[in-house]
């Protein structure tokens, strides 16, 4: 059942502004993670540079989310689902900002890989990225649509991605030990894989916030 509007129209407008800000932050963050990996896979230094530059945009969105949240708390003293929206939005924004930082780590390592190596093993990260991106997209959608069932699925998706990442890191570690002249290359790939795992883990945090907002259930650390 759709929610009734508030008697104070400005309260609705502020909550709408808060959601819009977060959704735009989510869009840019997801795009940045994608560009950082594409930069590596397509050997495109410009994409990597764009990711580093756009991180500031993500940071500004984080600040804006905090400002609007503060305004909402001060002016409207939200309770119930309105309060949960503000709290979950602030929490998601923190997660996004950290995902943005991981995109920058990936982009910076990708630049180094592109500059020094042209090896096929980089492509092994593509299926990992696809899984991570899917988790990220589902987490965002679960929040936007208030879809608790979708959010609930992400634990399994994360476990599957984590298993794949672990196997890949094992493979890269083996390569690193076998070919000492490529140790730096494989070290970069290992760190990129770990960053992707962190993005997936942070996406799960987003889905937990989505569940908290929708159902008031705090499932963190269970």
């Amino acid at each position: 059942m759709p929610k009734r509007t508030h008697i104070l129209a400005s309260f609705d407008a502020t909550l709408h502004k808060l959601r819009s800000e977060l959704l735009e932050m989510g869009r840019i963050t997801r795009q940045n993670v994608e560009l950082s990996v594409r930069g590596l896979l397509e050997r495109n230094k410009d994409l990597c540079n764009q990711v580093v530059a756009d991180d500031d945009v993500i940071d500004q969105h984080e600040i804006a989310v905090d400002e609007i949240s503060m305004e909402t708390l001060l002016k409207y003293r939200p309770v119930a689902s309105d309060l949960r929206l503000v709290l979950s939005t602030m929490s998601i924004s923190r997660s996004m900002e950290r995902m943005g930082d991981h995109a920058v780590y990936i982009a910076k390592r990708s630049r180094k890989v592109i500059a020094n190596y042209d090896l096929a093993d980089s492509q092994l990260l593509e299926p990992i990225f696809s899984k991570v991106d899917s988790i990220f997209e589902k987490a965002l959608r679960s929040f936007i649509d208030g879809d608790v069932d979708l959010a609930d699925q992400l634990d399994d998706d994360y476990s599957s991605a984590k298993k794949d990442i672990k196997a890949l890191i094992k493979k890269f570690t083996h390569q690193l030990e076998e070919t000492s002249e490529l140790s730096e290359y494989y070290l970069h790939l290992i760190f990129i894989a770990r960053s992707l795992q962190r993005v997936a883990a942070l996406s799960v945090n987003v889905s937990e916030d989505a569940i908290f907002h929708e159902s008031a259930e705090d499932i963190r650390h269970r």
Partner: peptide, 19 residues
């Protein structure tokens, strides 16, 4: 009650959606 009311009428009232 103020963080997760069970009844929609409670939620509407405490969050200013009544009227």
């Amino acid at each position: 009650l103020f963080s997760a009311p069970k009844e929609k009428r409670t939620e509407d009232y405490i969050s200013g959606r009544f009227g």
